[in-house]
Design a protein around this nucleic acid. Structure first.
Lengths: 150, 150
DNA sequence: AACGAATTTTAGGATAACCTATTTATTTTC
DNA sequence: GAAAATAAATAGGTTATCCTAAAATTCGTT
């Protein structure tokens, strides 16, 4: 069974790998705010589960399976961030909340989130009128007349 | 520090209390899919934190503080469920996902969710055109012309 | 009021995370 | 190339949550 925390580690390993070319234990530790010894412990588990290849004092690699999971999380995460930002959530908070949401949302909810993004982004206008009005509403708690529904 | 799991217990106690008038350990256990012995252990912790009043073989009561937390969770939960349903998520999934989301969402995201609900519900039409169109889009993956943006 | 069933409590363990302190290995610098 | 600095690994603990099995208590029925 892959736990939420294992997912966190996989995502972080994936990110560092793609940013740096290689992963060091202390980097994982600092990204996740844990001590290196905790990282080593988790690396052993992930290795035993066939999600990474970890041998003492050697470079860490993701296996096919591990990489797939990490990539899936990253994609999920990006959708959630985009969604929250459409909703008017700030960049910083969107990222924070997305990291928590990516572990727990059902496929169904995630599909609706994707649909929502696509719906907004396929609008002929750069930002749909209703979304502009919603943003205004968030800021001033006042509804603008909207052509469509009045 | 109140953990997510403590929050789960508080919410369940609150719900059973308002549904039944009194709470029994086995009911909490079955709602949370744990064994009664685990419940007892948690009740002791919640009691020590001043969130409930629990004495062996007596009725369980929520303290002021415990009740506030539980009520807060319930309200959060209800907002999230409403929001997910606006997005087209099914009732069952909305409830499941909301129970997970209620522990983790930031105030900011929750505020945007509340705004979204209010924005939709204060529309002069019972369902805004764009939302109707979005629902259609979810189902058929096809955009309807929308007056406002074309 | 007593017996059996249901419920609650206790005792003793398990697991997944985390930690600190220490040891071992590698890398850098003189 | 050896000492100092950095990084990684190990050993031994902690905490939150869960469990099973057994003991204690209460409840419901006769």
């Amino acid at each position: 069974m892959i736990t939420k925390r294992m997912e966190d580690y996989l995502r972080v390993i994936y990110e560092i790998l793609h940013y740096n070319g290689s992963v060091r234990i202390k980097d994982i530790a600092s990204k996740l705010n844990v001590k290196p010894s905790s990282v080593v412990e988790m690396l052993e588990k992930l290795n035993d589960l066939g999600l990474i290849i970890y041998k003492k004092r050697e470079f860490i690699k993701l296996t096919k399976k591990g990489e797939e999971i990490a990539k899936g999380l990253k994609i999920k995460n990006e959708f959630i961030v985009r969604f929250l930002k459409l909703l008017g959530v700030s960049h910083k908070t969107a990222i924070e909340d997305a990291h928590k949401m990516e572990h727990i949302l059902s496929k169904e909810t995630l599909d609706r989130i994707k649909d929502f993004i696509l719906y907004v982004e396929t609008c002929p206008k750069p930002i749909p009128e209703w979304l502009k009005n919603f943003r205004f509403f968030c800021k001033y708690k006042k509804r603008l007349r909207c052509k469509e529904c009045y």
